[in-house]
Design a protein around this nucleic acid. Structure first.
Lengths: 216, 216
DNA sequence: GTCTATACGGCGATAGAC
DNA sequence: GTCTATCGCCGTATAGAC
């Protein structure tokens, strides 16, 4: 039915506009009027579909979270299954975490880039970082840490968790695509080329975890 | 003169309040009225001393930037001088970057903790990250990269810059103190214990850079 | 000069009429 | 589903108190 698809189109265009604007300006830097204008709909429609502003924000976060989690979970389970009954290598595990989100072709789309920048915003927000990231991504992360524990059985959990902290900081800063590294490196590195960044970051993070084993 | 000190006290209390609130809620999440209330002064006083809201934000960033840069520059130059005419080790360089900001006793004060969270906010903001971080911290970072180049002469610059990206992401996420790692690790790690975090992060980041040399 | 009290024009989210 | 009205708070300018 065209009525159904039309409705869905408008819903999606609100989510798209909200995603792009929240990513760039943060939650409080965006008005529902700006979202409605960019989406080409009436100012009250967002409220009709999603309730108050805060719920729209959650809807934006939720929309791609499941897709993202399923990409990564698939890659992680593949790596674990392939190595069974042994343990996968650290590098394989790290790759399974980064490549599904940084190398996939969809990631060139504006929507995904905005979504990633939004994750960077949330992850580094003292107000929401603790709660929202836990809510949307915890089960996957726990499984990811389990895999690392298999690969590095002699390493204390505390090291693994701080290692994950470093990984998460590096990834979300890449997600933010601030242009900072472009300036710093005089154009040698480009913060919008996530696929290129991936290789360097994977090597760096892999070494960070591998050293924990050697330090025992 | 008491007039002078009184003036300075009010100026400072505005900066303190702005720092704490901007750090927690971001630029757009804070009103001048909220800042004035927390500072115990009239709404119009911030505007009188600092001009428009945007300039107050810059004043907050600027206040501690010079102190922070001088701490780190001192530590870095000490390490370089001590090793001359040879090159310092990677670990020494990384320590000179982290320890002055994470191990110093002042850092336990609320003001510094807020300032760090604010840096995390700015560094990960697509809107400001590129410009403001460059403006306040570039000379030090360039010197820091130079030192790494001395320690790792065979490593291409591109690897060094992406390494710095990982380091910066890990540090600023620690700065944000979101409580995320507390949940994730079931209390094993505490995001507000920066001094403890420092040791784990330094080892991790040092390994990330050292691997670049071995990979040649 | 330093600071407070107040006023103003504009825009915020959202509820209720349609 | 859409449009409009409402009410409150926004940043800032200004007038005058100390």
């Amino acid at each position: 039915m065209t009525g159904e698809t039309k409705k869905q189109e408008k819903r999606d265009s609100i989510l798209d506009a909200a995603e792009a604007l929240f990513a760039r300006h943060g939650y409080d830097g965006v008005t529902l009027r700006a979202i409605a204008k960019q989406a080409g709909v009436d100012v009250a429609l967002a409220n009709y579909h999603f309730g108050p502003k805060r719920d729209l924000f959650d809807a934006v976060l939720m929309r791609r979270a499941q897709i993202l989690n399923s990409w990564r979970l698939q890659a992680l389970e593949d790596v674990i299954a392939k190595a069974a009954p042994g343990a996968p290598t650290v590098e394989e595990i790290i790759r399974s975490y980064f490549e599904p989100v940084l190398k996939r072709s969809q990631v060139e789309q504006e929507g995904w880039k905005s979504y990633y920048a939004l994750i960077a915003y949330v992850n580094n927000s003292p107000e929401w970082g603790g709660k929202l990231m836990t809510q949307f991504f915890d089960p996957l992360i726990q499984r990811f840490i389990e895999a690392l524990r298999m690969a590095l059985p002699a390493v204390p959990d505390k090291n693994l968790y701080w290692g994950y902290h470093c990984l998460s900081g590096a990834l979300t800063l890449a997600f933010a695509q601030t242009g900072r590294i472009d300036h710093l490196s005089n154009g040698l590195c480009r913060s919008d080329d996530l696929s290129d960044a991936c290789d360097y970051i994977v090597d760096f993070i892999t070494a960070g975890f591998s050293q924990m084993d050697e330090a025992q």
